[in-house]
């Protein structure tokens, strides 16, 4: 690298050691300015990011629970389900969906578990009146593109969860070998991912089904400002 463009005397600056105070001050000033910029961008984008996330989740819930127009979040604390409005999600939360007349329809339950590559995050709709799974959506996964990602790209596979009895555990069987009501066809070439999805749903269902209230005593839809 030639220094022919060098218009400053960069080499002559550091002939003597600068004092520690100067080093500390320069770092502090840089850190201060950087902090201000980061806070500014955070505040500028905060609302949009929050809305994006909420919308994504809401769309997922509406997808797995057909005919739903309202939803609210339920949190399982101290052995009962209570309605929460705060932002954020954790493993002890599910959603309840309501029709336009604010009548209860079903739950959207989330589950996590190991897939072929990394954790798969599943959301599925559950109609307690029929004991049926009525929809499934993969919220997050890192399955092999072209193979494992068929768990959300293969509409035949996703469609199998649109009306699936879950009173007994669901089973994934080889394509074409389906005999029972609670069996689904696994994806050819992605048996492990398909079985992982089924396992996650079963596990989440078995965790949540004893926690759900009796039919008829589901939590009522509370007034919400954003709907």
């Amino acid at each position: 690298m030639t220094d022919k463009h060098d218009k400053t005397k960069a080499s002559s600056i550091v002939t003597q050691e600068p004092s520690s105070t100067r080093l500390i001050v320069s770092m502090a000033v840089a850190g201060f300015i950087s902090g201000i910029i980061i806070i500014a961008i955070y505040m500028l984008t905060f609302e949009t990011i929050k809305e994006n996330k909420a919308r994504e989740l809401r769309e997922a819930v509406f997808k797995v629970l057909p005919d739903v127009s309202f939803m609210q979040k339920l949190h399982f604390i101290d052995n009962k389900l209570i309605v929460v409005k705060a932002e954020g999600m954790d493993d002890e939360m599910i959603f309840a969906g309501y029709d336009p007349q604010r009548k209860f329809i079903g739950y959207a339950i989330q589950g996590k578990g190991p897939g072929f590559q990394d954790t798969i995050h599943v959301l599925f709709g559950y109609l307690s009146s029929k004991q049926n799974v009525v929809g499934m959506e993969i919220l997050d996964s890192r399955e092999t593109p072209g193979l494992g990602d068929k768990i959300f790209k293969d509409m035949d596979f996703v469609g199998e969860f649109s009306n699936l009895p879950i009173s007994k555990d669901i089973k994934a069987v080889k394509k074409g070998k389906k005999t029972q009501e609670n069996e689904i066809d696994a994806i050819t070439g992605a048996t492990i991912s398909s079985k992982a999805v089924v396992r996650i749903i079963n596990k989440a269902f078995n965790k949540w089904s004893p926690r759900l209230p009796q039919q008829g005593s589901e939590p009522v839809l509370e007034k919400q400002d954003n709907q």
């Binding site: 770092m27 840089a30 980061i38 961008i41 500028l44 984008t45 949009t48 990011i49």
Partner: peptide, 20 residues
């Protein structure tokens, strides 16, 4: 360290802008 502070600030700006 100062270069990293400068770079990291820009990266954070990009990160949040993309997220939004």
């Amino acid at each position: 360290s100062l270069y990293i502070i400068i770079i990291a600030t820009f990266v954070t700006v990009v990160d949040y802008s993309l997220l939004a």
